[in-house]
Amino acid sequence: MNGMTPLHLAVWYSLRAEDCSTVKTLLEYNADCSAKDNEGMTPLNHLAQGPGSEKLQKLLHWHLEEQRKRKAIEACSETKAKMDELENEISNVVGLHELKVQLRKWAKGMLLDERRRALGLKVGARRSPHMAFLGNPGTGKTMVARILGKLLHMVGILPTDKVTEVQRTDLVGEFVGHTGPKTRRKIKDAEGGILFVDEAYRLIPMQKADDKDYGLEALEEIMSVMDSGKVVVIFAGYSEPMKRVIASNEGFCRRVTKFFYFNDFSSEELAKILHIKMNNQAEESSLYGFKLHPSCTEEAVAALIESETTEKQRKEMNGGLVDPMLVNARENLDLRLSFDCIDTDEIQTITLEDLEAGLHLLSRTS
Rank of each mutant, 00 (worst) to 15 (best):
V155I: 14
R244T: 00
A190T: 04
G180W: 02
L171F: 04
N92V: 00
K272P: 01
K141Q: 13
S53L: 03
S295A: 08
I350G: 09
E89W: 13
G358N: 09
E28R: 01
M206E: 14
I187M: 08
Q207V: 07
Y201E: 07
L287V: 07
L9P: 00
E308D: 10
P129K: 11
T297P: 07
E346W: 09
L9E: 00
L9C: 00
V197F: 03
R16W: 00
A17H: 05
G237W: 00
M1W: 07
G180H: 05
R254H: 04
H46E: 02
S267N: 14
T142P: 12
D161L: 09
L361T: 15
A17T: 07
V155H: 06
P294F: 12
R336L: 12
P205G: 04
A132T: 12
G358Q: 09
S366T: 15
D340W: 12
G237R: 00
I273L: 11
L359H: 14
S266C: 03
T5H: 01
S338W: 12
I187D: 05
L111N: 08
L337K: 13
P241V: 03
S286A: 14
L121P: 06
L321W: 09
F259G: 01
V233G: 01
D354I: 14
V123N: 10
L96N: 02
D37S: 02
P6E: 01
M223G: 05
L56E: 05
K82M: 13
G40K: 09
H63Y: 15
E356L: 14
K312Y: 15
S91E: 13
K315T: 14
G229Y: 06
W62E: 12
G40R: 09
V232Y: 01
M110N: 09
R364M: 15
T365R: 15
K55H: 12
L352P: 14
F339K: 15
P51T: 04
A118Q: 08
K150E: 12
V231A: 11
Q167C: 09
N92R: 03
R70P: 04
E39P: 06
A81K: 15
L112P: 07
E269R: 01
P159V: 11
K188V: 06
L270V: 02
G95E: 13
Q281L: 02
H293P: 11
A300D: 02
D345C: 10
E54V: 08
A125Y: 12
E221Y: 05
D213F: 01
C20F: 00
E89L: 15
G52V: 06
A300P: 02
L152Y: 13
Q313D: 11
F175C: 01
M325A: 13
T160R: 15
T257R: 04
D334F: 15
W12H: 04
R168H: 06
F175A: 03
T42V: 01
L148Q: 12
E165S: 07
L333N: 10
G193Y: 11
E28W: 00
M317P: 06
L119K: 08
Q348G: 10
H293S: 15
M317C: 13
A303N: 10
R16K: 00
E54M: 07
V245W: 03
A190D: 06
L99C: 10
K212G: 00
V233P: 01
R127Q: 15
Q348N: 15
R254C: 03
M206N: 14
N328L: 13
A145G: 10
P205L: 04
T169G: 07
S267H: 13
